[in-house]
Design a protein around this nucleic acid. Structure first.
Length: 604
DNA sequence: AAAAAAG
């Protein structure tokens, strides 16, 4: 091997080490703060937060357990006080009235095991070239600051608590669109502030109480006003955690429902009232069939990882929920679809759920992978384990392990995950596994153990491929390559976060021939060195199954445009293609913001 | 063929 793996792994520890003028990735909640005021995570704090609490289960329901606790360092006037609720929160029946106190969702942010040393130098010059495409009729112009939008006092306070100072590009564009009531199909990567992009307008809209209409009085039936669906339980948990922060003390109540967890607890939460329901499809269908949830009051529908939600496995359930229960039709409800990738056949499907929607793409070619060093190694099936062991040993030798860097190993099957986990443990590597055959408790425990660094190796199936925000993943190993290039992109996007370059290693052999072409194209687009043998594989490959959409890596273009701009390269060199009709002026004036262009990790 | 999502 020309360059040793270990070199890359070592370089992966630090952006500066990889040279170049790339700015460090700044997590959304730390953006735009002078670095001296970036809060350091205190090691003592957080130890008392039970793991369960982080996942929204077994949360202490006591009165303000965390109020006045070690982490109440916001220095916000009116924080926790009675102020700030006037005018905006006139909805009757704020759920947190009276004796019951809303648990402070900002108290469980810390990850005490790690040193949060991500020093946050933002390269403001670098991100101005983030291309943005919008299409559709009468697209509302983007905003540059949160102040330009009247989201409401309580929500603004939470935005400050989250340390958001300026909206990210995707938020700039999507918030005015959704506040104006339009349906939306948005291509934007997780970590780019996508969750906030759909949560803010939903929370704000609910606070305003637009379309005030009391739900029918039905005992034990919940009438959420907004529904957020995601493809995995852990992702739903994550969205719930984030939405709780945004909704804190707004009077807007967020509840999560997903399978594998005791349904009774979720039912109790629902009975206490729900404005925003975050759910996975299976459990929601269950709740609908038990008549414990009605969708007739739904005003907002958001699908996260929408392309996954509408693919073969999920589509029937989604259709049932959206079209065959009591949800108001498109045009009455507002629908927002988000994903990093949006193949046009899925776009076509998705348009069934939308009404006169706006298409938005934020990102640029290769942005998903610029900071990730991608390596592909030819490894026969029988050699994979020993090869993995070599990589892990090299990692330890280079101190990466000592620095609590995490390694995420993707395999194809659940059985394969179990046996690899077992084998790693037998060989002295602290590993755990997450996949769909494990109990939900085991899954959440595995994720916690991995995140905390207690078990710095996680063997995973695709259940962990999308959406999950796991800081400190330094290395993603595609022990088995996926069969879909989009899955590859999602998987490697778990690394490279928090200002570090990531490393992604793939084991390739004859069984992956169908991936050769897409893989080498993707690597080329992200300026990776493509091994000669892989190029030979890809030229040998006749016509790959699923391939690059119109030659553009990131995202997609609006499929409704296909007829008239065939051949034009979206985001192509020279850009001519970057502005589509009617929006050029606004786009070229686009500047400022909390993003550095090289925010690979954040943009998966 | 596999994974995810209800129990």
């Amino acid at each position: 091997m020309p360059t040793s793996y270990a070199d890359s792994a070592a370089a992966g520890g630090n952006v500066a080490a990889s040279g170049g003028s790339r700015s460090s990735y700044v997590p959304p909640h730390l953006r735009n703060r002078p670095s001296s005021t970036v809060p350091q995570v205190s090691a003592s704090y957080g130890a008392s937060v039970s793991g369960d609490e982080r996942f929204g289960r077994g949360a202490p329901s006591g009165d303000g357990v965390y109020f006045g606790g070690p982490r109440n360092d916001y220095n916000q006037p009116a924080y926790g006080g009675g102020g700030g609720r006037g005018g905006w929160n006139n909805r009757s029946g704020g759920w947190d009235r009276g004796r019951e106190r809303e648990v402070n969702p900002f108290s469980d942010d810390a990850e005490p095991v790690f040193d949060e040393q991500e020093n946050t130098v933002i390269n403001f010059d670098a991100y101005e070239d983030i291309p943005v495409e919008t299409s559709g009729d009468n697209v509302p112009p983007p905003v540059n600051t949160f102040a330009e939008i009247d989201l409401g006092e309580a929500l603004n306070l939470n935005i400050r608590r989250c340390k958001y100072v300026k909206p990210t590009p995707v938020q700039r564009y999507t918030i005015p669109i959704s506040l104006s009531g339009r349906d939306l199909m948005a291509c934007a990567q997780t970590g780019s502030g996508k969750t906030a992009a759909f949560c803010f307008p939903i929370i704000s809209g609910i606070m305003r109480g637009q379309g005030v209409q009391r739900p029918p009085r039905m005992p034990r039936m919940a009438f959420p006003l907004a529904l957020i669906l995601s493809p995995t339980r852990e992702l739903s948990c994550q969205i719930h955690e984030e939405a709780r922060k945004f909704a804190y003390q707004t009077g807007v109540r967020v509840v999560v429902a997903y399978g594998g967890a005791p349904v009774n607890q979720q039912l109790r939460e629902l009975e206490r009232g729900v404005d925003i329901l975050v759910a996975t499809p299976g459990r929601l269908v269950d709740l609908l069939e038990r008549a414990r949830v009605s969708l007739q009051m739904i005003r907002y529908l958001a699908l996260d990882e929408a392309d996954r939600m509408l693919d073969m496995g999920f589509e029937p359930q989604i259709r049932k929920i959206v079209q065959q229960m009591d949800m108001p039709p498109p045009g009455i409800r507002q629908t927002m679809l988000f994903s990093a990738t949006f193949p046009k056949e899925i776009q076509r499907l998705a348009s069934d759920f939308l009404s006169c929607y706006i298409f938005l793409a934020v990102g640029r070619v290769g942005s998903s992978t610029d900071l990730i060093v991608q390596r592909v190694e030819f490894v026969q099936e029988t050699d994979k384990r020993s090869h993995l062991m070599d990589l892990l040993h090299a990692q330890i030798a280079n101190g990466v392990q000592g620095k609590q860097a995490l390694t995420l190993v993707f395999v194809e099957t659940k059985k394969g995950a179990d046996s690899l986990e077992y084998w790693l443990c037998m060989n002295g590597f602290p590993a755990t596994a997450i996949h769909g055959d494990r109990t939900q408790q085991e899954r959440e425990q595995a994720l916690r153990s991995f995140k905390s660094g207690h078990t710095p190796i996680l063997v995973a199936t695709d259940v962990a491929a999308r959406g999950l925000d796991i800081p400190h993943v330094a290395h993603v190993v595609n022990f088995d390559l996926p069969n879909d290039i989009d899955d590859y992109v999602h998987r490697i996007g778990r690394t490279g976060r928090a200002g570090k370059t990531g490393l992604a290693t793939a084991f390739f052999n004859e069984n992956n021939a169908s991936m050769a072409k897409a893989l080498s194209e993707l690597m080329q687009e992200s300026n990776q060195e493509v091994p000669a043998w892989l190029s030979r594989f890809s030229s040998r490959q006749s016509y790959g199954g699923k391939n690059r959409r119109g030659g553009s890596r990131f995202g997609s273009r609006d499929f409704r445009r296909e007829s008239f701009d065939r051949g034009a390269d979206f985001y192509g060199a020279g850009n001519a293609g970057g502005d589509y009709g009617g929006y050029g002026a606004a786009d070229s004036g686009y500047s400022g913001g909390a993003y550095s262009a090289g925010v690979t990790s954040a943009w998966d």
